[in-house]
Design a protein around this nucleic acid. Structure first.
Lengths: 204, 204
DNA sequence: GAGAAAAGTCAACAAGCGTTGAATTCTGGA
DNA sequence: TCCAGAATTCAACGCTTGTTGACTTTTCTC
């Protein structure tokens, strides 16, 4: 087995880039472990030592590759909400589409740990909260700007965020039984009309 | 001044209970400092030492009175949502009433640090999350049980929680500009119809 | 005013943290 | 086979944390 791995690494070195170099493989292992720990524990409780242990390497190696815990966090959280192009979607379907996309991004085909990391850490870490506000401003408000009257984009986007982040909070972090135990489709059916109203409905 | 204080304490001891005994006054000072620190920093980042410093006493005294950090937290967080009696309220006003009460509980006349403590800490601390689930089950679901068909209470309560906690999350913790900078009344007007629908509206 | 009890302080502990630089092992090319 | 350089480990640093027990000071009772 060691021999097989050796050959494989050798292959990796010669083909250059198709396979990853050894250092890049451990870098990726560190990033993977970091994402899982940050997602499960939040920034403060996740320690360099526990991340290194999960990646089966020495803590010092983490510093060698990522300089500091903060820099590791920044590298681990490269947020892309992957918001779909909504231009061709009928206006009355926008709420359902966005809600389903959001759930899919958290627990479906598009899911990874990044959103969990961001939300869990933003609550106690002002820098991460800053990051989340940036993501929000750049990605959500931008999409909404094309749908809503200019003056209303930020307001409507914030309302959408309050419902969708509230959904994530109660379903994934707090796991309230009334919402965490139901199917993705059922929850989406309940929430979608709210999002629809925030996107396109009349507001007082 | 010292003399005056001494007289005041003397008075406290003789009238028994109208004024607080010295130990109960420092106990209260510790609790106050603890609530503020827990609210601002969350359970993990708030330290016994910083709480003691804010109360101008020695860290060891905190242990003397509250045994451990966990026990101090439990004492500091005695949650009462102060949910109003909704029995006399017209059904169509329930959403607005509940939404306004919630905002009032966070930032108005009924506000204290307890909800902030609970939410901020529940996100990274499973025990606190447990506590929040209990509060939710005992207080919110109980009120809803009298308004909704038996089988729907938990589901509707969770939907209400997803919107109202989402509001608290985006307004008080993340402070998204589109929702944190607006007036209480404006936000209530946007959110109330959603809550109304979750409480009494038709769900698919 | 003496003595007991309560209130509060002090110094230290063991453990965990992020971080560092020197020492060691591994590995691909001459 | 040997060696340079990359990859990795080791041991330690300074700091903060919750917690403890011995000590001193304040306060109340007789």
């Amino acid at each position: 087995m060691t021999f097989g791995l050796y050959l494989w690494y050798g292959d990796a070195m010669t083909t250059e880039g198709v396979r990853l170099s050894k250092s890049e493989r451990t870098k990726a292992a560190i990033l993977g472990a970091a994402r899982e720990q940050f997602a499960r524990q939040g920034y403060d409780r996740a320690s360099i030592r526990s991340i290194a242990a999960q990646a089966s390497i020495d803590p010092a190696l983490v510093m060698r590759y990522f300089t500091s815990k903060e820099a590791l966090f920044a590298a681990a959280v490269d947020v892309d909400l992957m918001l779909p192009d909504l231009s061709g979607v009928p206006v009355e379907d926008l709420g359902a589409r966005l809600t389903r996309h959001f759930l899919d991004r958290w627990e479906g085909a598009l899911s990874d740990d990044v959103l969990m990391i961001l939300l869990r850490s933003a609550v106690t870490n002002e820098q991460v909260a800053d990051r989340l506000r940036s993501v929000f401003a750049e990605q959500v408000v931008a999409v909404l700007a094309r749908l809503a009257p200019p003056g209303e984009a930020e307001r409507r986007a914030a309302l959408v965020a309050s419902q969708l982040l509230g959904l994530a909070l109660t379903r994934y972090l707090l796991r309230l039984p009334g919402i965490a135990s139901r199917s993705r489709e059922d929850v989406a059916a309940d929430i979608a009309p709210t999002v629809q109203r925030y996107l396109t409905g009349g507001l007082a």
